[in-house]
Design a protein around this nucleic acid. Structure first.
Lengths: 248, 248
DNA sequence: CGAGAGTTTGAATGTGCTCAAGGAACGTGG
DNA sequence: CCACGTTCCTTGAGCACATTCAAACTCTCG
């Protein structure tokens, strides 16, 4: 939980993410890395990084590991409203509002750079393209949220789960975390159920359907998608909503 | 569909909305009104204001009437992802992305001020508090989207519809469009169903349940909520997510 | 090896959907 | 002002997708 050094390799993922939106200059990239250096924080799996109702404070740039944003109802029902993947910037501009409307928790051990408002704003002021990239990131997150609304409102369980897989693979590919047709997928079925608005039991059965249709292999916290086009078809997935300048 | 004069009364609703987030000075208010003057556009009910896949262009500030943002699936299923109410600014900063990920359509006859990027940005640059208010508006919209995700994922039909009523009443009250315990509610059950992810038939039955529980009166395109606390309870509604500085 | 978390299975239930049709309200033109 | 078409609302019946409850199985880790 303390500041430590940052390797070029881990900072790279943030840069890759921003470069999905804008061409970041080498100077700006260096400044960004500089700003993150010495501000890396680690947290263990299950740890709550922010809590609904808290005063908003710092900006986080995820380096390694997975986290989730979620909201809960009084009686314990929980909805994961977004996955926070490596490279994602959590809550740029969040300091503008008084209190958080959702919580954030680590799914796996995570590390992230934590910047305060001044440090973050001086980055934004220093390079207009970098600032635009951050804004695009925020707009992309808003667009993901809209797509999830469509997903929960109008796709059935099978399409819905398939769509989530498509989104995650596409987002991970953009930051270089997909190797061939496989990627790490360190999320339990309990959390997958909370992300798709399904019960754990039905999620499990839906996964089995996807497996027997040869659309996914999910084992040992690793996802393999042998035929991405087929999965996209099943999900009616179109990556345009992510607003990447180009999708590989 | 052409530029026309703007009365102080109609511009007022935009100002009221922004003032829910920040204290806007009289000078900034005058500049805002000035910028909108002569750029008011009207559209008729059912008209599409923007289409998914279009190049993003102008910023719209809704003055009168209701509109919706929506997304559709190939086979025609439709999900309304947000209501656009008087005072709402549609897509500040939208010019940063290439293409729209959703469509916008008027539910009723609408009027709105349409600003291009330069005009809008000069407003933002001219007054820091005004700029912050616009950013808060964007963040509030993102928060609404998260709440809708929770709504669709984890609330049942009864709670879900009740929650939508609570949200709309709260948003309309913030811009002065609630008179006592009643407000205009010009939306068909078809659209209400698409907003709540229900079928029209089931939405209709859910409305009847809410009526017989004396939580709502919905007639002649007017909504009356005799006991707002009771409706909030049924919906598990907490207005904090709207991020208004103070809620009446 | 035992504890605990996560996954899988079966069975019964229920919430919400589809299909189908009738009724009410509204706008337009004769 | 009435006739008509259209859109919207309402109702009934049967069905299906997804839930709940309960229990067994598996895997991991200390």
């Amino acid at each position: 939980m303390s500041g430590r050094g940052i390797s070029a390799a881990t900072a790279d993922v943030v840069l890759r993410r921003l470069r999905a939106f804008r061409a970041i200059s080498e100077e700006a990239a260096a400044k960004l890395e500089q700003a993150m250096r010495g501000h890396v924080v680690v947290a263990s799996a299950g740890q709550e990084l922010a809590t609904e109702g808290d005063a908003a404070a710092t900006i986080r740039m995820m380096l390694t590991g997975w986290a989730v944003r979620y909201k809960t109802l009084e009686d314990g029902r929980r909805q994961i409203v977004n996955l926070v993947l490596p490279g994602d910037t959590c809550d740029a501009q969040i300091y503008l509002v008084k209190r958080l409307d959702h919580s954030i928790a680590a799914l796996t051990p995570v590390s992230y750079a934590e910047l305060d408002r001044e440090r973050f704003e001086s980055l934004m002021v220093g390079d207009r393209t970098l600032a635009e990239a951050f804004w695009c990131e925020t707009l992309s997150n808003a667009a993901i949220q809209r797509e999830w609304t469509l997903n929960l409102g109008r796709r059935d369980a099978y399409e819905r789960v398939a769509h989530l897989f498509c989104e995650v693979v596409t987002r991970l590919r953009a930051v270089g975390l997909v190797d061939g047709d496989s990627c790490k997928f360190p999320i339990t079925q309990i959390d997958l159920a909370d992300a798709t608005g399904l019960s754990v039991v039905h999620l499990n059965r839906t996964l089995q359907e996807l497996r027997s249709a040869d659309l996914i292999v999910l084992r040992d916290r690793t996802l393999t998608v042998p035929d991405f086009d087929a999965l996209m078809g099943a999900a009616m997935f179109d990556p345009d909503y992510l607003h990447y300048a180009s999708v590989d």
